[in-house]
Design a protein around this nucleic acid. Structure first.
Lengths: 144, 144
DNA sequence: GCTTGACCTCAACATTAGTTGAGGTTGTAG
DNA sequence: CTACAACCTCAACTAATGTTGAGGTCAAGC
């Protein structure tokens, strides 16, 4: 096996900025050890770990939950094939729910286009149930 | 037509917090006029406007773009049926794209579950193209 | 052995979408 | 006419996800 990676190398190979790698480390998502001169060195499997993080993020899982999921792995190891199967299955369920929710919204939107009802009481889109409401402070964006 | 609404009434009827209504007003999404005592009074159509805002938000449109869309209406009026048809069509395209993107991701995820490849170079999920990267600073959450 | 690019830490800032609290004013019911 | 809920403004805070910059250190090639 080849030698260990520096932050710069990891950044180039993963496409994640150095500042983000530092950030992930502070958040406990990845780890490194240090040279005698206090520089980070990464084992090669950090790339796989970052790939997992990126996919989960794209699904919409917040970093804190990704960190929790990774930390919950026995011995805090980098995901093996089986671990990955478990994680990705769980996250795919998130994704399925999210897709279902958006699809429902789209269908409502299609029905509504041109109807012009927009009645706060009768419009099918105005469904206070599965709303974003009550999520507390902070950013709640769904998309760029 | 009934009398005008106070902030509290609008908040109760729309399900949006008073603080959020103030915020929307600062952002130019809704408007009010004031009593002699400087309290806000809303025309009833503000509820329809808020319904539009909420739907757009649920789709994932950031407030700034919603504000721009509403401001672009001739005479800055509250959406009529035709306006709503235009807005919702445009936003539905956003929604379609988002759903397509997530669906693609899900399919990749399904294929990948159990494959365990997670190779930074070969994994179909590791596709740097349509990534979140390069969106600049700020929050990029996709989901609660 | 020196220079130069890569690396270190830490604090502050950016962005979106609001909420919270202090300190003061209004309006309505009794 | 008074009490009390509802309203006002403004500043500061929350939260997530990072980026930017200042000030200083490390390591690799020449």
């Amino acid at each position: 096996m080849r030698k260990e990676l520096t932050v710069g190398e990891v950044a180039r190979r993963s496409g994640v900025a150095v500042s983000a790698l530092h950030f992930y480390e502070r958040r406990g998502l990845i780890e490194s050890h240090r040279t005698s001169g206090n520089q980070r060195r990464y084992a090669r499997d950090v790339l796989r770990r970052i790939a997992v993080i990126r996919v989960a993020q794209e699904i919409g899982v917040p970093l804190a939950r990704i960190a929790a999921a990774l930390a919950a792995l026995p011995e805090a190891r980098t995901p093996t094939r089986d671990d990955w199967a478990k994680l990705s299955t769980a996250w795919r369920d998130d994704l399925d729910r999210r897709i279902a929710q958006l699809t429902k919204l789209r269908d409502g939107l299609s029905d509504c286009i041109g109807c012009g009802c927009m009645s706060i009481d009768r419009c099918p889109l105005h469904n206070p149930e599965d709303r974003l409401a009550g999520k507390g402070p902070g950013a709640h964006r769904l998309q760029p």
